[in-house]
Design a protein around this nucleic acid. Structure first.
Lengths: 243, 243
DNA sequence: GAGTGGTCTAGACCACACA
DNA sequence: GTGTGGTCTAGACCACTCC
């Protein structure tokens, strides 16, 4: 079947990445060559290459023309407060089984300001949600998210969804698919809001993420800023020199 | 010629991205379909697709199966202090024609600490450079970079190179090629160093980038931390939901 | 020379959007 | 149905690395 979601190259990438995880292929050593893998999986060499290209962009392997494909070495500076900046998921999914709750600090529908019109490509007559949530992880205040979304693209948003996961609602109920995002990461001084809800001290630096997220059809779906205390989270980027 | 650096798909991607820049293809409108582009460039459809895949990962276009390929809309929250976190280049190249100078605050060769051994995958007997530079842009202090590099991989480093561009030396003289990097971005309190050299006030937050960079052959080439004042720079990530 | 990954083609079929 | 992008193949040749 040539279905996108069951594409052979995705299956093969999954299998190979499992083999890297379970130690079948080990760090700094070469994988079997592409022809051999193609025979094993009963596909053409190009399909194997496509799988390996993806894994290379994700940093799991690297290739050297004329030599082979190798498993990347482990990353020694990973830590528990690392949070991938290159992901499309809500806090709940990102933190796995952790206990994530949300307190709604503000929830309204408004006509958008000029800046929000620009950021979400809207007319002044297109209403937007204006949402401020305090996300609480393991009963400790963790992050303040201020989110704007067009009402027409995300109908019927309500308190219950806000207390759980907006992302899950968008994906599983509305079947919206995220395409790309532009994220900006900066340091900032703590505001009264930060001090009140995140227990930040007056001279505690804050880490802020500002982003616009687009759907696969090119429409902006979200403009938001998220702030956390400097000692509770950092953002990581895995970058790759491939086209 | 089937040379990597003159690959057809790279040429085509370059031409298409120029056409996006000069307005031949405009925002939110479809490009010619892949078959038409293939005929125009005298290549197979797959080669055109490969070019478009790359441009899509870079956020310049987005594709919709069954509909076409479209030019992404402009990003309305770009600002002058934005600095792409997903790039392999030194300050000089990144800031273009700007006036970048470097003051050497520290330069020594040492045996690596345990942490540095881990970060650069070295033995305790492999010497490393320990470099601290203050980067000055348009005569204003901008960023403090603390860099460790293995001596064997970057021989003959000297004051003159440090005053100019280490990256240029690595690329053009040593012909080293960067493969991937893991970067960590965090907020921090200002240190005495920051206050002395970057004119940070005591309660000014700092933005810190910590990174490991690997060559295309899997060897770690650099471990570094860079700090700037919160009001002088932010990092941006363009992220993409593609494999 | 032998073995590896990189590029490219021509052709085929599938999935999806829209009329 | 028509037109779009997505996947996949078999085969070819090239560039690079090591022996």
């Amino acid at each position: 079947m040539k279905n996108m979601t069951h594409a052979k190259y995705l299956e093969i990438a999954k299998i190979i990445s499992q083999r890297i995880n379970d130690g079948t292929y080990t760090s700094r050593l070469p994988l079997p060559d592409q022809e051999t893998l193609a025979k094993e999986f009963g596909v053409s060499r190009l399909t194997v290459k496509k799988a390996l290209d993806g894994l290379e962009r994700q940093g799991l392997v690297y290739k050297q023309s004329g030599l082979g494909t190798f498993v990347s070495s482990n990353i020694p500076i990973k830590s528990s407060i690392d949070s991938p900046a290159n992901m499309f998921m809500g806090l709940k999914k990102q933190l796995g089984s952790s206990n994530v709750k949300s307190e709604i600090l503000h929830f309204s529908v408004e006509f958008p300001s000029e800046q929000i019109q620009k950021n979400l490509d809207l007319k002044s007559s297109d209403p937007v949600y204006d949402i401020v949530r305090l996300r609480i992880v393991d009963d400790l205040p963790f992050i303040i998210e201020h989110t704007y979304m067009p009402v027409t693209l995300v109908p019927n948003l309500n308190d219950e969804i806000l207390h759980n996961s907006i992302y899950e609602y968008m994906h599983h109920t509305l079947h919206l698919k995220f395409g790309h995002a532009y994220r900006k990461i900066r340091a900032a001084k703590s505001s009264e809001y930060d001090q009140k809800y995140l227990n930040a001290k007056k001279d505690d630096p804050m880490l802020e993420l500002e982003q616009i997220v687009w759907l696969t059809n090119g429409q902006p779906i979200e403009y938001s800023t998220s702030r956390n205390r400097y000692d509770q989270r950092d953002y990581t980027v895995l970058e790759n020199n491939r086209f």
